[in-house]
Structures are given as structure tokens and as C-alpha cells.
Design a protein around this nucleic acid. Structure first.
Lengths: 154, 154
DNA sequence: ATTATAAACTTGCATTATACAAATAAATGG
DNA sequence: CCATTTATTTGTATAATGCAAGTTTATAAT
């Protein structure tokens, strides 16, 4: 079997370290998982607890407590769903949005710096490749999550 | 600022979920960080504690304890360096190597499955892109690690 | 040599994260 | 209306984290 993993592993590691670094920058102090939660809520507002937890592969009980913390920090708002009395809908507060956007900006600034070392053709190739990968990963059965494989690409 | 982050974030998340899943498969039960440690020791055997911890962005005290655990599990061997009485050299035991390889195989099998959904031209393009990214990330100053930026590509 | 400083690693300790089991509460299906 | 399922929370035990302070060895300065 070919060793495809290595370059991925290194890249993912670098990206992860950057994300970790970005969390503890600029006044706020957020853990990496918390930033992942903020990111996902920003990306798609109004999801239920379950949905976000599952998307991120976080155990629902751990997630419940993480959300409690984020609500106390006034970064996340948790409102009962009008449709179903059991579910809670997650959105970002203004401060949460600000925090998420600030992290986003740092990540994007880093990526711009990375891409500034490439020709615009190379950049296009890379972005296209990431896109290709995401599509193929979404299509793969033993894709990712412990819940076997959520094929949502939304 | 352009939103470059999103596709990366999604891809990195998928890869992370897969890695997590691979850890708790096949009899052994390894945490995600432990598998990262095994991976890095396998990738480059004979590094010092400091080196591995720094590469992975793990606090050295946490790392020290993780290694203690892995030594107890008989997956990692920790030997005093002949050159410097302060440092310890990390290698994998046979069982550690087996475990690391098993995880590696699963990861590679997954990647093969992902790539099987592409033409061989697309696959080449993607692998080339990851390589490009890694080079550019390594060249970027505010690259990753808390220790600012280790530019080792080895 | 001797002392001071630094580097590699470990331990103490307090905090936080994790996940299983069990609980609550609301929905849905006979 | 009762049984079952679903969404979320809480109890509890374990593991992970990271700062401060410690030990030991190396290196530099006198």
C-alpha cells in the first residue's frame, strides 16, 4: 500500500497548530474545541445541539457542558426550538460572532501568506484540489465520524 | 479578505475524525494524541522528548506523562541519550511499531478509497497540491507552532 | 576547579475535558 | 393512553492539561 498519509498528516498537523495558536490570541482565550464549536455555529447558524456535536465528532454529554461554558462566556445563545420542545437551537451572540470572525481573519491571513508564496495558477490548483478532496471524502463510506459517515456536504 | 479557510477546515476536520476513529479500532485502544505521538516517533525514530513534544505542539509536562503511559503500555521505549545525560531518546517497541503501522494502514486504506473516486490525473494534482502547501506552510513565518515556527521539513 | 546559569526532564497540584450510565422531558406510534 | 424513542442534562469516575517548582546534567564564566 502506497504511503499517501504522510503529507496529509503533516499538513493537518500544521493547520491544527495554527488553529490552536489563533485561539489564544487577541485577548480572548478559547480552547481549540471551543473554537471548533464557534466555527461550526457560525458556518451554519440555528443547528440543534445534536447536529453540531455529531458534525464535530464530540460526545453529546461533553458537548452539552462545553455549550454551557460558552453560554456563560456569552459567546453562544441556546434557545428552545419552536418546533420541538426537546431540542435547543444554537446561535452566536454578537460577542461570539466577533470572536469567531477574529479567529477566521487570522486563519485567512495565514493562508493568504501561505498562498503568497505560490503563483496564482498554483493557488487555483491547490484550492481546486482541496475541493476535489472534500467531495471525494464526503462520498467515501468509511469517511470519518464515529457515527460511521455523515455524507452531508452543506 | 477572501475566505480560504472553509474548505481547509472541513477537510482537516474530516481527516481528524478519521484519525480518531482509526485509533479505537482493531483491538488496541489509543487516544488521538497518543496516536500522534506514535506517528511522529515512527516517522523519525530516535528524537528527544523535547523535539517530539515541540513538533506536536504538546506541553512538555503533559508530554512527559503521556510518554510514561505509552512506556507502561509497552508501545514506546525511552532510552538515555549517550551524548547528553539530560535527554531521552524515543523509539517504538515492536508492539508500538505494529500499532502505528496498523493505524497507518487504515489511514492509507481510507485515502486510497478517497482517491479511487478520482482520475489518476486528479490524484496526481491533489498530491502535488498537498506537497506545495506543505512547502509554503513551512516557509511561512507565522506558520504554526506556539514556538512561533519550526521550519523543519524533514 | 568552582560557581552560576541554562537546558532537559519530572512531579505536585489545581483545573478542565472526557465519556459512560442514568435521569428528565418531550415527541411519536401503536 | 401507554410504550418507545429522541434530545438533552447530570452524576461520577477517569484522564488530560499546564503552570510552578523541583532534580539532574551540561555549559559558561571566573
Amino acid at each position: 500500500m502506497e504511503n499517501l498519509r504522510e503529507p496529509f498528516q503533516i499538513m493537518v498537523r500544521r493547520f491544527g497548530l495554527l488553529a490552536k495558536y489563533c485561539c489564544s490570541t487577541g485577548g480572548y482565550n478559547i480552547s481549540l474545541v471551543q473554537s471548533h464549536i464557534l466555527y461550526e455555529i457560525e458556518r451554519k447558524s440555528g443547528q440543534s445541539m445534536q447536529m453540531v456535536a455529531e458534525t464535530l465528532g464530540i460526545d453529546i454529554t461533553t458537548f452539552s457542558r462545553q455549550i454551557q461554558t460558552l453560554v456563560k462566556m456569552d459567546l453562544v445563545k441556546k434557545s428552545p426550538s419552536p418546533d420541538d420542545g426537546r431540542v435547543f437551537i444554537l446561535t452566536l451572540t454578537d460577542e461570539g460572532l466577533q470572536t469567531a470572525e477574529s479567529i477566521d481573519n487570522q486563519m485567512n491571513a495565514f493562508l493568504e501568506d501561505v498562498f503568497s508564496r505560490m503563483s496564482s495558477f498554483e493557488k487555483d490548483t491547490v484550492m481546486h484540489s482541496i475541493d476535489l478532496l472534500n467531495r471525494s471524502m464526503a462520498a467515501s463510506e468509511h469517511c470519518c465520524s464515529p457515527v460511521s459517515c455523515k455524507k452531508d456536504q452543506d
